[in-house]
Amino acid sequence: MRFKISIQEDNGHKRLLTCVAWSSTEEIYSCGEDHLLICWHLESGIAHSTVVTEFPNDFYPTDMQWHPRSNHTASAAKTSSLLITTADGKYYLVNKNGRIEKSIDAHKGATTVGKWSTDGSALLTAGEDGLIKIWSRSGMLRSTLVKASLPILTSSWSPDCSMILYSQGGNLLLQSFNSNSKPYKVC
């Protein structure tokens, strides 16, 4: 099977594209250094783009992900949240229309990772400061799960939300939510 997409218009990004996220099987969102949030609709192998919003000039996104429950029901899609992390240490919850619903100071230095838990009840952020923080869906800090000496550039929830996988330098580590456990080095 070959996957072929054509771009019809010239409504794309003019500068570096830094993050993308699926909203549904026919809809992709992208954001980059041009401060644009663009929605791409895939129809019959052709991508049609629409600029959703232009963020402020100091908005430099590093990661983004749609809330996992946004695809389940039509009513949930109306209240779905796009989690966007930025180079200034913040994370944002943005609605489908591109309006910033919440802005949270999360890290010193860039917030490099933002991931919703698989059940959508929480989110994690990781940053250049070597911290991984767990937040409620509404933006309240629940805990600082990891305090590392190096920046954390990638992280992910386990499917059952009981552990976090993250990288530190050349190491891959697992951290359980059990408060007494130490990170387990995978490689």
Rank of each mutant, 00 (worst) to 15 (best):
E43Y: 13
N171P: 00
Y184K: 14
Y166G: 00
L150N: 03
E128N: 14
A106L: 09
D105S: 13
W66I: 05
E33K: 12
P68L: 13
L36Y: 13
K108V: 15
K182D: 07
M140L: 12
A74E: 14
R15E: 15
T118V: 10
A148Y: 08
Y184L: 15
S176R: 05
I38L: 07
M64H: 04
R99I: 07
H35Q: 15
T79Q: 08
L83A: 03
P183R: 03
S136Q: 09
T111I: 06
E33G: 11
P68C: 13
C19V: 00
V146F: 12
C161E: 13
T111V: 07
Y184A: 08
A87C: 05
R15Q: 13
I104P: 00
S44H: 10
T85M: 03
K78I: 13
G45P: 01
E33Y: 14
Y29D: 03
L36F: 11
L174T: 08
D58C: 06
A74T: 04
S162T: 13
Q8A: 15
A148L: 04
D129R: 01
D58S: 11
I7L: 10
T53I: 07
F177I: 02
K90L: 07
R142E: 14
E54R: 14
K14F: 11
L172H: 08
F59C: 12
L165D: 00
S156W: 02
A106C: 05
H41R: 12
Q65Y: 10
W40K: 09
L17R: 01
D34Y: 07
T144M: 12
T112H: 08
T73D: 10
L173W: 02
P183C: 06
N11T: 13
W40L: 14
T125R: 04
P61S: 00
K147P: 03
G120M: 01
Y60E: 02
Q8S: 13
E101N: 04
W22Q: 07
L145H: 11
N178Y: 12
I84N: 00
F3C: 08
G114I: 02
S23A: 12
I100H: 01
G32S: 07
H67P: 14
W66H: 08
I46D: 08
L124S: 06
V146Y: 12
